[in-house]
Design a protein around this nucleic acid. Structure first.
Length: 426
DNA sequence: TCTGGGGTCCTAGGACCC
DNA sequence: TCTGGGGTCCTAGGACCC
C-alpha cells in the first residue's frame, strides 16, 4: 500500500503559520512578478477565486472582499517542505519526495486494519510539529492513492485521511473523481476522453477498453488506466535521479528594450544557473539562451530569439558560463523590440566528478577553487556579496515585482519572528 | 499598466549506418 | 528488368506533472 501525503493549499498554509492575522481568512499567493494566483486558501476558493487567475483581473475583488495577498516566498516554502519531510521520515523508511508539497510513502509494513490510524497519526504529527495541515490518501497504487487523497480533501467526515483497500469497494469513490482530476490525465486527454468516448470520471476510465485507449494515449496514459484498476505500473522512486536539464528564467518587472539591460539580466540568470549546478554538484557543456517579447501583449511586435553555445569541457563555473552567455546575447540580439522575459538552460548535465576532459586543453582547476571561495563568502555574508561585474546593481527596475513578500522567517537571522512577552514573573 | 517557473517522458520522422 | 531489411541516434513537438 502507498500513502500520498499532500499539504493543503501549501503556500497559503505556510504564510498562515507565521502570521496569525491570516488564520481563517481568505488568502491568495501570487506567482513570480505578482502575475497570477498559484495558491488559494479554502476561504478564497469559496469566494470564487480561480487557480491561475491573473492578479490584475481580481485585484478589485480582493480589495472588496478583504482577501489577503502575498507574493511567493519560495525560500520559506522550501524550508517548510523540508521540515515536513523530516516528520514523515518517522512514518516509513521508503519515501518518495515527489514535489514541494507531496510525498509518497511505502506502507507495506503496516497491517491493513491500522492504515487509517497510521494516516491520522501522520496528519496530526505534521500539523502539531510544523503547523501545516495535510491530507492523506492510502491505496494499492500511486494513482489510486491520489484519488483517495482528493476524496479525503473534499469530504470533511473523513477527517483528512482516506483508505482505498481494493478497487471493488472503490467504485463509488472513483465515480466522484472527475476525469480531468485523475493523475496523469491532463486537459488535452480529458477533453478527448469526454468527447470521443464519453468518459467523464475515473470509474468510466477504468472500464475503457485498452485497445481503444491506445489509439490516442501514449504508454503513460495506458499506465494510468491500469493503475486505476489496481495494477501497479508506477514504482516508488526512492533515489532522486540526476537532473537532466536546469533552467533559470524570469519575466521582467517592466519591458526591456536595450541590450545593456538584457545583458545584465542574462548575466544574473547565468550566475543563478551556475550556482544551482554547483549546489547540485553537476556540470554542463551545452547551454541555450533565449529572450522573448511578452506572451499576452498583442499590441507589441512579437519576437523570440534563441541561441546555443557549447563549451570544450563541461563546467559549472560562473565566469565561463556568464561570458559565453553574454556572447550569445550579442549574436541573437535584435533591437526595436520590448522584451518581457529571458533565460538560460543547461542540458546534458553530468556529475561533477565524472567530467570528460579534453585531450587538447590543459587541466586547470584554478577557477574551481575560486568558485568554492565565492560560494563560501556569499553563503556567509549574503547573496551577491561578490558577483560578476556584468550583473546590474540591486533593485534595478526590470527586476521582478514582489510587492507583497513575507519574511524569510526560518532561514534569515534578520527576519526571525519577534515575540513580545507581556507577562512577568512575580 | 498587468497573465510564473521548472521539470519529465514519449513519439514520429529524418539522417545515418551496414 | 530489378531497388530489402534491420538497425541507431537525434530532434522537435506534444503530452503530462507540480
Amino acid at each position: 500500500m502507498y500513502a500520498l501525503v499532500d499539504c493543503n493549499n501549501f503556500y497559503c498554509s505556510c504564510e498562515r503559520v507565521f502570521d496569525v492575522e491570516l488564520r481563517n481568512k481568505p488568502i491568495v499567493v501570487l506567482s513570480n512578478n505578482d502575475g497570477c494566483v498559484i495558491s488559494r486558501s479554502q476561504e478564497s476558493k469559496d469566494l470564487g477565486i480561480k487557480m491561475g487567475a491573473p492578479y490584475f483581473k481580481i485585484q478589485e475583488l480582493c480589495e472588496d472582499k478583504g482577501i489577503f495577498v502575498r507574493s511567493s516566498n519560495y525560500t520559506l516554502y522550501g524550508d517548510m517542505s523540508h521540515r515536513i519531510k523530516q516528520v514523515l521520515d518517522l512514518f516509513s523508511s521508503n519515501i518518495e519526495d515527489y514535489s514541494i508539497d507531496e510525498s509518497f510513502l511505502d506502507l507495506s509494513d503496516i497491517p491493513n486494519k491500522s492504515l487509517n490510524e497510521h494516516g491520522m497519526d501522520m496528519k496530526q504529527t505534521v500539523y502539531k510539529w510544523t503547523g501545516v495541515p495535510v491530507s492523506v490518501g492510502i491505496a494499492p497504487t500511486k494513482t489510486l492513492a491520489k484519488v483517495a487523497n482528493h476524496y479525503a480533501k473534499k469530504n470533511s467526515f473523513t477527517g483528512g485521511v482516506f483508505v482505498i483497500n481494493s478497487v471493488k469497494e472503490a467504485e463509488e469513490i472513483l465515480k466522484q473523481e472527475a476525469i480531468e482530476d485523475v493523475w496523469g490525465i491532463g486537459r488535452q486527454w480529458s477533453e478527448k476522453l469526454r468527447w470521443k468516448f464519453n468518459v467523464t470520471n475515473a470509474y468510466e476510465l477504468s472500464q475503457l477498453d485498452i485497445l481503444k485507449a491506445r489509439s490516442f494515449l501514449n504508454k503513460l496514459g495506458i499506465h494510468t488506466i491500469r493503475e486505476i484498476n489496481g495494477q501497479n505500473c508506477i514504482e516508488l522512486e526512492l533515489e532522486s535521479t540526476t537532473a537532466k536539464s536546469l533552467m533559470r528564467s524570469r519575466s521582467f518587472g517592466r519591458g526591456v528594450s536595450t541590450k545593456k539591460e538584457m545583458k545584465e539580466a542574462v548575466a544574473e540568470y547565468a550566475t543563478r544557473a551556475a550556482e544551482k549546478l554547483r549546489q547540485k554538484k553537476l556540470v554542463a557543456r551545452n547551454f541555450s539562451v533565449f529572450m522573448r517579447t511578452p506572451k499576452y501583449r498583442d499590441d507589441l511586435a512579437k519576437k523570440y530569439s534563441y541561441g546555443v553555445f557549447e563549451l570544450d569541457v563541461a563546467t559549472n563555473n560562473t565566469l565561463e558560463i556568464v561570458s559565453k552567455a553574454l556572447e550569445t546575447v550579442d549574436k541573437i540580439w535584435s533591437s526595436g523590440y520590448v522584451y518581457g522575459k529571458a533565460g538560460i538552460m543547461a542540458t546534458d548535465l553530468e556529475e561533477e566528478g565524472n567530467v570528460q576532459q579534453n585531450l587538447f586543453i590543459p587541466l586547470n582547476n584554478k577557477n574551481d577553487k575560486l568558485m568554492k571561495a565565492l560560494d563560501v563568502i556569499n553563503n556567509r555574508f549574503g547573496k551577491d556579496c561578490i558577483k560578476v561585474g556584468a550583473m546590474s546593481k540591486e533593485n534595478n527596475t526590470w527586476h521582478m515585482k514582489r510587492r507583497f513578500h513575507s519574511n524569510r522567517f526560518t532561514t534569515n537571522w534578520d527576519q526571525l519572528m519577534i515575540v513580545h512577552c507581556i507577562s512577568s514573573v512575580s
